[in-house]
Amino acid sequence: MSGRSNLTHEDVLRILQIVDKSEDVEISVEYGGLKLHVSKGAAAGRGAASTPLEHALPKQVARPLLTSNEASDDDLPSATSTPLAQPTSETASSGDAIPAGALAIIAPLLGRFYRSSSPTEPPLVEVGSKISEDDTVGVVEVMKLFNEIKSGLSGTVIEIRAANEEMVEEGQVLFVVRPD
């Protein structure tokens, strides 16, 4: 092995043997002049933004994606119970400010926003609609997969900020809701 590293050939072999015996691992070791990167199983090819350990995910489609990758991977249990709604102060980057006392329902992912569940159905909600936590308020489609957006809060819709069939960014405000 390289003289600049204290890791011996045997050490590396041992690491690889451990990897070989486990499922779904990804390790990166940087030690002196040595860089070792191994991934296997479900941990392989997960993309740079992900951390190797996978946590249990909830059943809902939209929920796991409601926060950024970093947040959802690091602390999924709390992320899963976080409503889609964001307090006013945290949505400053998403365009116009949210009126005091109101909450926003944000796009859980980048994609095309639909206000109804099928082209022949009326919009799921309108301004003035009363919504409760489990209501589906819209659909976001990405790469041919349709994801229902759950309200995550109860209240009255006071503003709809995205047009039907508009492309929306992850985190973009879709609905402004006055909570009950």
Partner: peptide, 13 residues
């Protein structure tokens, strides 16, 4: 492949 998740790991499994 880096940048997006992929099905490579699934296939290996």
């Amino acid at each position: 492949v880096d940048g997006v998740p992929t099905t490579i790991g699934f296939h290996q499994r």
